[in-house]
Design a protein around this nucleic acid. Structure first.
Lengths: 277, 277
DNA sequence: TTTTATTTGTCCGTATGTATT
DNA sequence: AAATACATACGGACAAATAAA
């Protein structure tokens, strides 16, 4: 039965009646209430929320208003709505802490440690559950030529990966580019995910005489376009973090350029450094 | 006159008719079209777009559909809608490149260089136009005590700033916390923005025998809550980047903890480091 | 100062499409 | 085939914020 658990702190029919109090739209108030319920486990992880029409009855609003509230929560990464399936509470996965030490030499120098291929292993030992790789060879665009300091049109190896967590949710995509003259005929061009995972890639590059030495990372948070949203299997409106990484060998030659698209709600980026001169 | 410039690539009345083609909602198509017009300067920066009802007529859709499209563009940071004022195209400001060298010692060690107080100066010499500061002394919460490695309840100096660009738009907020035993009676507690701007703070800390030595920064992109959106003068739904910074002196003692909230569409975060051992 | 017009924001009720179950 | 549940869209109503009269 429609238990009127929560009365929105607002008046009767005529829109929002608020005096000097800041006016807050109904759909925001409903989102706040639902968010609270998720946080206090009234709606547990994996649960399917009551359907929109039920929530509408409970809060005494129109279905559209509930829908707007749920879209807000969906953009926050808290729930996910699917046609004909309802709205499920997503598992409250702790933020994946992405630190500089994921590139640590010991992570990839000793193949026996069986840690290779885990580009985003954090303190808790998380590692990706699934990863699909797609390799191709392309002529360098003008931009890519600049990034890799090669000639425009020269071949580059493109290595595109989609990384999912244990539940099958896409957490991020990563596209790496290597100069073909470095990568050709090596494991970098294998579609196996094993040795040529990220750590493995570093090892391969080392074997080729291009040991990774320094890294530049740029982060920018934004909304995805339609294609990006589709490749990440998320809605537009949910923010992503674009990471661009350039890796140099000891002599300052760029050996890799990578573009990652990360579901913003899943990652925390961690950098430690000394105050520069 | 309603010049039907752009026909949405969709059928007649019955919703979206799409066969094998990926179905794209009308409001997304309209957003795409409007975004393109902004990019090709058909709608220049600072321009007020045609009102929603006009756009609705042009695209032959309902006003609500146009409204949804504009909300999408607003979340992208491309336009801003205001009641009774219309929708203006925001200036296409290049991303502010926030690098580690904003903490460079030379930036704050020599007061004569007149660069002090510019926490986010980038290669192009950008600096904040306005900055309002609010100082208070508070007992440390449990979290803050942990961050600053002091006792819970011990006093901390809280220094909250709102930074705007030259046009008066809030770009970010920054709240710094210092142990009171370090900061008391110093310029850190002055509300003047001059010497106690960021660079200045570092100089003051150096004078106090706590020269900043290393820094840890954590970034996380997400949507703001209502209060945060208000303090940044932006809408909920537009992503922000939360930065948490801990600064240590040479002996590893935390001397500052700061929380920044940044309009995501304005910043690019830049880190360079060597591959760790 | 008060009133009026303009424009967007929110919400409602309704209808229909789409994807599952 | 039918029921389910969300997604999108429409048209109408009114409120809120601001500008203009």
């Amino acid at each position: 039965m429609p238990t009127a658990r929560c009365q929105l702190g607002i008046g009767s029919r005529p829109q929002l009646s608020l005096g000097e109090v800041r006016m807050v739209a109904k759909f925001v108030q409903i989102a706040d209430e639902l968010r609270a319920r998720v946080r206090e486990r009234q709606y547990a992880e994996g649960t399917v929320l009551p359907r929109q029409s039920e929530l509408a009855t409970e809060f005494d609003v129109n279905v559209n208003t509930v829908s707007a509230a749920l879209k807000l929560l969906e953009r926050e990464g808290l729930v996910q709505s699917r046609r004909s399936q309802g709205t499920v509470v997503l598992p409250q996965i702790p933020l994946r802490k992405v630190g500089m030490d994921r590139y640590s030499r010991r992570r990839w120098e000793r193949p026996t440690e069986a840690e290779d291929g885990a580009p985003y292993m954090d303190e808790r030992g998380w590692q990706p559950a699934a990863q699909s790789t797609e390799i191709s060879i392309e002529p360098a665009t003008e931009e890519m030529a600049g990034r890799l300091e090669i000639d425009e049109g020269e071949d580059v190896v493109r290595r595109a990966r989609v990384i999912r967590d244990a539940r099958g949710t896409v957490t991020h995509t990563l596209v790496s580019y290597y100069p073909h003259r470095i990568a050709k005929g090596t494991l970098l061009m294998s579609e196996e995910q094993g040795p040529a995972g990220h750590g493995g890639a570093f090892r391969v590059l080392t074997d080729l005489g291009h040991e990774p030495h320094s890294i530049n990372e740029r982060l920018h948070a934004r909304l995805p376009d339609g294609d990006e949203a589709q490749s990440l299997e998320m809605g537009i409106g949910e923010p992503i973090v674009e990471m661009r990484r350039r890796t140099y060998d000891g002599s300052g030659v760029p050996i890799e350029y990578a573009i990652g698209l990360h579901r913003a709600s899943r990652f925390q980026w961690n950098y430690t450094f000394n105050v520069p001169e």
